[in-house]
Nucleic acid binder design. Structure first.
Length: 427
RNA sequence: GGAGGGGUGGCCGAGCGGUCAAAGGCAACAGACUGUAAAUCUGUCGGGUUUUCCCUACGUAGGUUCGAAUCCUACCCCCUCCA
């Protein structure tokens, strides 16, 4: 557990504490000492892993803190392993959930894994070097597990009594939600993953979100009991916004890290709209900016805090999508919001020139532009004063929009409210 | 296997023969206020070209009624207690 006055000597743990990544860890003092030895060149880099589910074809902002943990780990001269849960995803982590996850088929898992791999390549350096990241898939060993030998070798180290006492299981049972035996095995397999990674790759540290604490501790103990290994666990805090909402949800859904799932412009916007109270915290967690700079930014008064939000958006987007995409997103945002214009990175919707020539009712165009889910919703939006055409309020939902409405740049800017815009271009 | 309770809109949760597209809350969207923030207030919140009209919807399939989310039958699923 975390010692209250723990002051780490190692670069890595020092950074975690300073930047707010540390929730708790097993024997942090010993881990700190090992890390220092590496820094002094007295031992080879330590190897840490974090496991990721393959439940979607991209990771989202909720996993970003974990990705950043691996990134800092690598920057501090240690070696990261990204563990893809190709095997465990077929079971579904029951931690703190009331319902079972839907079981995914192998093809879907495979596809998801490919999408997730690309995200990591932006945050970590992969390769064969001593501190290069590697990616492994736990299906490689879980798929071929033999049931009886596995039970005999590992099952005997788990008591049901203890497993039932873990919050992740206990809370579910207390709420009288069913927990299947399949899901119940998840924690055993995750513990086994840790031991297997130690054996195969010499991995000695597992990190993860605080909801993984129970699973991580199980792995540490299993390693000690079965092979006398000294393993460590480190968790990061569960993140919520200052107003208490879970991170990573927006109107359009999850904030994906993959440009196909969420455009860099929308990603930039997500960070730009951070609540005032979160700016400092997020700068520390999701950018590489130095502490003194962050201190200055987070104390900007009143509306000036918006400068800090832009920098947050710039740096977070650069990490995830590259500097070019970030610059374009910022440019688009500034022309759209500060000059009332429209930048290139706004979503564009091609509409056949002939249809525009004939005129399309405003409500219908809102729908094709993706700004409303149905004609009715579009009408409501316009009736409520939320529809704009090239910046001007749309009074009548039936008002035809034609080529006459093309602006100087040859496009039509449609807006739903102040933040959602789309460009209609004749095709 | 026996007894009882329950399955309602994105979620929670009322309704228990017409006045029900279904109270209330949350979430969401828009408006006002602002700073592309938070909080607050207002409006909207199944679909249909603007609708005193139509369609779809209250686990599934039938039925009784002029009329059902509400009653009946069968089936599926969940929960509780007993065995």
């Amino acid at each position: 557990m975390t010692e209250p006055a723990f002051t780490p000597a190692s670069a890595f743990l020092g950074r975690l504490v300073e930047r707010g990544y540390l929730n708790q860890g097993t024997d942090l003092t010993a881990l700190d000492a090992r890390l220092v030895e590496v820094e002094k060149g007295q031992r080879a880099p330590l190897i840490a892993y974090i496991g990721f589910d393959c439940t979607a074809e991209s990771l989202h902002v909720g996993s970003l803190i974990q990705i950043m943990l691996l990134r800092h780990w690598q920057q501090c001269g240690q070696k990261p392993i990204v563990l893809m849960g190709g095997g465990t995803t077929r079971i579904g982590d029951p931690s703190f959930r009331d319902d079972s996850r839907p079981l995914l088929d192998d093809a879907t898992i495979e596809r998801n894994m490919a999408g997730i791999r690309r995200v990591f390549e932006r945050f970590l350096t992969f390769g064969d070097g001593p501190t290069d990241a590697i990616m492994v898939n736990n299906a490689d060993w879980l798929d071929e597990l033999a049931y009886i030998p596995f039970l005999r070798d590992y099952g005997r180290h788990f008591t049901i009594n203890r497993m039932l006492s873990f919050d992740s299981v206990r809370l579910r049972l207390e709420r009288e939600q069913p927990l299947t035996f399949l899901e119940f095995n998840y924690m055993i397999l995750q513990a086994y993953d840790f031991v297997e990674l130690a054996r195969r790759h010499g991995c000695s540290v597992q990190m993860g979100g605080s909801d993984q604490w129970g699973n991580i501790v199980n792995g540490v103990e299993l390693g000690r009991r079965t092979q006398g290994l000294e393993l460590f666990g480190v968790t990061s805090p569960l993140l919520t916004t200052a107003s208490g909402a879970k991170m990573g949800k927006t109107a359009q859904g999850a904030v994906w890290l993959n440009p196909e799932s969420l455009s860099p412009y929308d990603y930039w916007q997500y960070w730009r709209n951070t609540e005032d109270a979160d700016v400092g915290r997020f700068l520390r967690l999701f950018t590489d900016l130095p502490e003194d700079e962050i201190g200055r930014l987070e104390s900007l008064p009143g509306a000036e805090i918006n400068q800090a939000k832009k920098l947050l958006a710039d740096h977070a987007t650069t990490l995830c999508h590259g500097a070019e995409a970030a610059a374009e997103a910022r440019h688009t945002a500034e022309t759209t919001f500060e000059q009332g214009g429209s930048g290139e990175a706004l979503p564009t919707v091609p509409v056949p020139r002939a249809e525009l020539g004939a005129g399309i009712p405003a409500y219908a165009l809102m729908v094709t532009a993706g700004l409303a889910g149905s004609n009715k919703e579009a009408r409501r939006l316009i009736a409520g004063g939320g529809g704009r055409l090239n910046g001007a309020l749309i009074e009548d939902a039936n008002r035809p929009i034609t080529i006459e409405d093309l602006d100087a740049a040859g496009q039509i800017k449609l807006s739903a409210g102040k933040k959602r815009h789309a460009l209609v271009i004749p095709a």
